[in-house]
């Protein structure tokens, strides 16, 4: 195990975050605050509580997930895309380092960033609304698994993308709609019956639902199903990434 190499990649990636602090951390915080002002205070004050939870509080888990998902994907995808783009990836490819170690370095750093962002949003949110966390252990577990799974997913996108457009494509066209329609801002029970069924096809719903349960013990689907879904997604990402490296996908000829 080349621990020094993992450390080197991890530190290098975290250094990049420090240099782009505004972009990496400040922007999700600012956008979250805006969501709170608009949805929590302005609109939320006119909405009755949802399933016994005040609307302002109700949206907190969804908002955290929204940032977590988009940030994990963009951090991890950019982390591996940029060296590919500039050509510096040659160094990683010629280093005495295994696929697994590369993955731990890049995905670990991306997931750490997301985790920091998630925590900051949680703290920011607690300044606006009253929060109680019913199951702290499960909250952390959902947070961690989501960060890792979606950083892996971002890593896949970063490997796959060969231009900036592709890099933005999936986050923009797939992830953002899924997150918005996955119950970030509403309970699925508020939808007409037909759309409730359609929503069940949205994998993000299970994440948000499970995460929300860890706060308020209310959920759209059972927690067990949520856990199975996120674990399944994590494993699927691992398999894809493993296959990509095994074949030297777009990195090695």
């Amino acid at each position: 195990m080349n621990v020094e190499a993992i450390k080197a990649i991890y530190i290098n990636e975290m250094r990049r975050t420090r240099k782009t602090l505004m972009q990496s951390i400040a922007s999700p915080v600012i956008s979250t605050v805006l969501y709170f002002v608009v949805f929590g205070s302005a609109i939320g004050s006119r909405i009755q509580s949802v399933e016994g939870v005040e609307y302002g509080s109700f949206i907190v888990p969804g908002l955290i997930m929204l940032s977590l998902l988009t940030q994990s994907i963009s951090n991890a995808s950019f982390g591996i895309f940029f060296p590919k783009f500039t050509g510096t990836v040659y160094e990683v490819m010629s280093a005495p380092i295994s696929f697994f170690e590369v993955l731990v370095g890049y995905v670990g750093a991306a997931a750490t960033k997301s985790l920091i962002i998630g925590t900051i949003i949680l703290i920011t949110a607690s300044l606006f609304v009253e929060l109680r966390i019913a199951h702290p252990f499960w909250m952390v577990a959902f947070l961690l698994m989501t960060c890792i799974a979606f950083s892996l997913f971002g890593f896949i996108i970063g490997l796959w993308a060969d231009n900036f457009e592709k890099l933005q494509l999936i986050p923009l066209l797939v992830i953002t709609p899924l997150v918005f329609l996955g119950g970030s801002f509403y309970s699925v029970s508020m939808l007409p019956e037909f759309w409730q069924k359609v929503t069940l096809l949205n994998p993000v719903l299970y994440l948000i639902s499970g995460f929300r349960w860890s706060f308020f013990e209310v959920s759209d689907v059972s927690v067990t199903v949520s856990l199975i879904m996120i674990t399944g997604f994590l494993i699927a990402c691992l398999i894809v990434v493993w296959a990509m490296f095994k074949t030297g996908y777009k990195l090695k000829q």
């Binding site: 020094e4 190499a5 530190i11 160094e91």
Partner: peptide, 14 residues
């Protein structure tokens, strides 16, 4: 300095 340090680590040296 950072990029040279990175290379050294990548190749497994403390």
């Amino acid at each position: 300095g950072d990029t040279v340090r990175f290379s050294r680590g990548l190749f497994g040296l403390p």
